[in-house]
Write a protein that binds this DNA or RNA. Structure first.
Length: 265
DNA sequence: TTCCATGTTCCGCA
DNA sequence: TTGCGGAACATGGA
């Protein structure tokens, strides 16, 4: 589930496994995963070097190289993940980027549906502004006043506003449902209908849900009992009131919510 | 077989 | 002109 919490777990994984090891070779079996970079250029940037730092902004993960110039850039689409392994039988089925280290281990970026991307950038901030990304949803500098200002300008639904990466980066379909459930707000509410105290509650729920799920390794099996994500399916029951969870297309995405615990406005 | 899925981008329409 | 929502993209499981 590559939204902010998942990508943050990937970042920590890359940080914990793949730093300070010389890159021996790379392999890209399907070139469609590359964006704005040729295999040759990617190879020249990576081979012989090592990763020394990581950074995440929204759903984008950056791995900094030891020359201090280039960053490998990964986006996980709807189906991406990372694996660090030595044993060939641990090789994941849809590896799109294989980074072979001289210690015999490989870091593999697996992305079955090819909706993610692999790229190279020299400037993280420039990349973020070029892609019109808003502040990271967990950025401590992100204040309620700025959040409110951005949300209030939106028409449509509060769910699509939360998922708008230009507004706040990192929230997708699944976690927007959780944030709105914890805030007690129906996903099809219009942002204009939310009074200040409800928006404040939404901001608080956004921070709380993202921090909690990162701490729980973005693993729904470890989420608090009060979370709706593990019940996010047809015939799911609300963990709070036990009632039936409603399933509805909102702004083009399937949303799950509790019609009695979540209100409009 | 058809529908659906956590992603972003592009296009048509108000 | 702007911004919204739906379609497209690629793949595979139910």
């Amino acid at each position: 589930m590559p939204e902010l919490p998942d990508v943050e777990v990937f970042r920590q994984y890359l940080e914990g496994t793949s730093l300070h090891q010389e890159i021996e070779s790379i392999e890209v079996p399907d070139l469609r995963i590359l964006e704005n970079v040729s295999l040759e250029r990617l190879r020249r940037a990576l081979v012989g070097r090592s990763f020394t730092s990581t950074h995440r902004h929204g759903k984008f993960l950056f791995a900094g190289l030891d020359n201090g110039i280039f960053w490998l850039l990964l986006h996980f689409g709807m189906s991406g993940f990372l694996r660090y392994f030595k044993n060939p039988e641990e090789r994941p089925p849809h590896g799109r980027l294989f980074v072979q280290f001289t210690n015999g281990y490989q870091l593999v970026y697996d992305c079955q549906r090819l909706l993610g991307l692999v790229s190279l950038t020299e400037d993280v901030n420039e990349f973020i502004s070029e892609h019109d990304l808003g502040p990271d949803a967990l950025d401590p500098e992100l204040r309620y006043s700025a959040f409110k200002e951005a949300i209030s300008r939106k028409r449509g639904t509060i769910k699509s506003a939360l998922m708008d990466q230009r507004l706040v980066a990192g929230i997708g379909n699944v976690y927007s449902d959780e944030i709105l459930f914890q805030a007690g707000i129906r996903p099809d509410t219009g942002p204009v209908d939310l009074k200040d105290d409800r928006l404040k509650e939404l901001f608080r729920a956004m921070k709380e849900v993202l921090q909690t799920t990162v701490a729980r390794r973005a693993d729904p099996d470890r989420f608090p009992q009060s979370y709706i994500i593990p019940h996010r399916r047809r015939d799911g029951k609300c963990p709070r009131c036990g009632g039936n969870i409603e399933r509805k297309k909102i702004s083009g995405r399937t949303s799950y919510f509790c019609p009695s615990c979540q209100q409009r406005g």
